[in-house]
Amino acid sequence: MVKMNKKALGLLSAAHFVTDLNQGALPALLPFFKEALNLSYTTAGAILLSANLTSSIIQPVFGHLSDRKPIGWLLPLAPLIACLGISASGFIPHYFLLLACIIASGIGIAIFHPEGFKTAYFFTGEKKATGMSIFAVGGNLGIALGPIWALILVTSLGLRGTLGMIVPGILIGGVLLFNLSEITSPVETAHKEAKKEERKPLTKDQKWTFFLLVTVATVRAWIQFGMATYIPFYYINYLKGNPLYAGKLVSTFLISGAAGTLIGAPLADRWGHKKFLHITLLLSFPFLLLFYYSSGFISFILLGIAGMVLISSFALTTVMGQATLPQHLGIASGMMVGFTMSAGGIGVTILGVIADAWGVPMAMKTILILPLIAFGISLMVKYPLKLKGER
């Protein structure tokens, strides 16, 4: 039995945390960019679109390159690039230059995810979902703490406080560089062995199952980023509330999701991957609905439960995608994580159009129905697949 390497997963998880800290910070910074540059909701949403569109295109490309040749040397560089783009964003007085900074950060995020998830796969051992959850929770925590960290910086130091985002990027880059040979050696070994094997074309079932998994994960990401973006808009711009209060709500949602990733993965390994996916998508709907119509402390509890249930399948869907395309781990990782998160973020731009036309509350209500759509799609997933030549 192959044992789980918790040290390697911990290092990769820390890098994942720093990389996605920037992804989490961006939605919380949008109201400040909106005010500083006098933007509409649609143009503010386009800032997120620029990062996610860039990322959605680049991540599958890097996934494909990773399947052809190991590119583990990029792992220390990627978090640094991601942090550099966001740290510079608070100093930019022009909209298009701001987009350039956000795109640069998106490129750093895009470089990290395919190689990071592919590398983590080789350290997960027998319990794939459980092992992958250790790596995935770093990203979930980064996205969760990104809003509160960004809001602390800009409320304390002004918009130029974003410069503080560069510090974790420098630190983790150095740590990964020091441990690079240990982290990348299993990938290089597997790549050499894979060269000796004949790659078989994908079956129709593989293509259809993978497409459905990508779609489910995209809708889930749309919910996640929609909540992270429109809770601040709802409480800061619509209700004229405290920015830090809004940041605490977003972080409650996402930190609970990170906890759900760790708690849910062992349950998924025990109950069955597909069954667990169905349960979590279906249960997300009532808790999000109850949160919207609640107030005070109970809203934190309901939002926390909603985040825990919804995001608990994050590592799971990645493992399902990798199991569906076992000979294409790089592109499977790039699509299941990078593309779906980025494409989900693109959905936030649609919410911006809705908010401009019918108001922020309507955008929030749109988010509420998305779990039911994802659940309906997941019912069509055929998993696990019996692959030819499988032992």
Rank of each mutant, 00 (worst) to 15 (best):
F285L: 11
V381I: 15
K207W: 00
F287H: 03
A190V: 08
G24A: 05
G321P: 11
R391A: 11
S89C: 14
G334E: 08
A120Y: 02
S56L: 09
G296A: 05
A332S: 08
G138S: 02
V175E: 01
D269M: 12
N140R: 12
L163E: 04
W222R: 11
F122I: 07
I166R: 04
I134T: 05
P93G: 08
G169A: 04
R270M: 06
I172E: 00
E390F: 01
K200N: 06
I377L: 14
A217Q: 11
P286L: 06
L75K: 07
P31E: 02
F123D: 01
L26C: 11
D205A: 15
K7V: 03
S185Q: 15
M4H: 01
P147C: 12
I311N: 10
G247P: 07
L289R: 07
Q23L: 14
G334P: 10
A8L: 03
G307D: 02
T184H: 03
A78W: 03
K200I: 10
R220P: 02
M227L: 13
G376C: 13
L329Q: 10
S66C: 11
L48Y: 02
I231A: 02
P361I: 05
G321N: 07
G321F: 07
A100L: 15
K118V: 02
M341D: 06
F135K: 07
F300L: 10
F211A: 13
I367F: 04
V309L: 14
I236E: 03
W73G: 02
G241Y: 00
K275P: 10
I166C: 03
L202P: 14
N242S: 11
I148E: 00
L26M: 15
D20T: 06
H113I: 06
L176A: 01
Q327G: 10
I109L: 13
T42Y: 13
I86H: 09
F276W: 07
K6N: 10
L267H: 06
Y238K: 12
G85H: 08
F291C: 01
V353Y: 13
S55Y: 06
I86Y: 03
A332G: 07
I305W: 00
T209E: 02
S133N: 09
G344W: 01
F96I: 09
L77P: 07
Y235L: 15
N179E: 05
M4N: 01
I170R: 04
L385Q: 01
T184C: 03
E193S: 12
F339Q: 03
T280H: 15
T43D: 14
S342D: 08
K240S: 12
P286E: 05
V337A: 11
N22V: 06
A25Q: 14
I301M: 08
G24K: 09
P93R: 10
G345D: 05
C101V: 00
V219G: 01
V337P: 09
V216P: 05
T349I: 12
T124Q: 04
F300W: 00
M227E: 02
L65F: 13
F135E: 00
N242H: 01
Y234I: 15
V2Y: 04
L379R: 13
G10D: 02
I103G: 12
K7A: 02
D269E: 05
L283A: 15
T119S: 06
Q23I: 08
L12G: 00
L39R: 07
G257F: 00
P361Q: 08
E198T: 15
A14V: 10
I301Y: 01
P186N: 08
S299L: 01
R199S: 14
I236M: 08
P27E: 09
